[in-house]
Simulated scan of single mutants.
Amino acid sequence: MSESLDARMRDEIDDQVAEAFDAYLADKLAEPGPLRASLTSRHRAGPVLGTVGLGALATVLAPDGNTVVCWIWGAIAVIDLAWLVTARRR
């Protein structure tokens, strides 16, 4: 009897947490930000996706040195952030 009560309580709590998380995400997605500005402005997300694709290719083709991969992804992060910031200013 107590096991079924515990299971029902856990399900109810899980449902409440899921609803609260959905509401939180909906609020966050409604807020303006650099990614939203990039998607809604004339600025296209193509270069961002392109740099990520090239980074994935470079990661696969990179030698065993982790330093090279770290530098590649660091450069990609800087380029993408600069792209998003310029998109936000427009």
Rank of each mutant, 00 (worst) to 15 (best):
D64V: 05
A56G: 02
P47H: 07
V52C: 08
D27S: 15
R36N: 03
G46V: 13
S38M: 12
L61C: 11
V48M: 09
V52R: 09
A30C: 07
T40S: 03
E31A: 15
V68A: 01
P32N: 08
D27I: 08
G55S: 10
V68K: 08
L49I: 01
V48L: 10
L35V: 04
D27G: 14
G53A: 13
S41T: 09
G46Q: 14
K28P: 06
K28D: 14
R44G: 07
T40K: 09
L49P: 07
L54G: 11
A56M: 02
G65Y: 06
P34M: 03
S41E: 05
L29P: 11
P63A: 09
G53C: 08
V48I: 14
S38T: 14
E31K: 15
L39K: 09
L39A: 10
D27E: 15
A56R: 03
A37D: 03
P34Q: 00
L29G: 13
R42G: 09
L39N: 04
A56Q: 01
V68P: 05
R42A: 06
G50M: 06
R36G: 00
V68I: 09
A58W: 11
S41D: 05
L39T: 01
G65N: 04
S41N: 10
S41W: 02
P34V: 14
G55Y: 05
P47N: 02
A56N: 06
L35R: 08
V52M: 07
D27Q: 14
K28H: 15
K28I: 15
D64L: 04
R36Q: 06
G50L: 11
G65E: 04
R42C: 00
H43K: 12
V52A: 13
V48W: 09
G33N: 13
A56E: 04
L49D: 03
L39R: 03
L61M: 08
A30T: 07
G53Q: 10
G53D: 12
G65H: 00
P63S: 12
V60S: 07
A62C: 14
S41M: 06
A56V: 01
S41Q: 01
R44T: 10
S41R: 02
L54N: 07
A62M: 13
T40H: 00
G50H: 10
V68G: 10
L57Q: 11
G55C: 03
P32H: 03
A62W: 06
L29E: 14
V60N: 05
G55I: 04
A45G: 00
G53H: 07
A58D: 04
V60A: 11
E31M: 15
H43T: 13
D64W: 10
P63H: 08
A37R: 05
V48F: 08
L61A: 13
P34I: 09
N66I: 03
D64R: 12
E31T: 14
T59C: 01
A58Y: 08
P34K: 08
L61P: 02
K28T: 14
L61V: 11
D64I: 04
P34L: 05
R44Q: 10
P32T: 07
P47K: 12
T51H: 13
L57K: 11
E31D: 15
A62S: 15
V52K: 02
A30H: 06
D27V: 13
P32R: 05
E31V: 15
D27W: 15
R42D: 13
P47E: 01
P32V: 07
N66E: 04
S38A: 14
V60Y: 12
R42E: 10
R42M: 09
L35D: 02
T67F: 02
N66H: 07
R36D: 05
L29K: 14
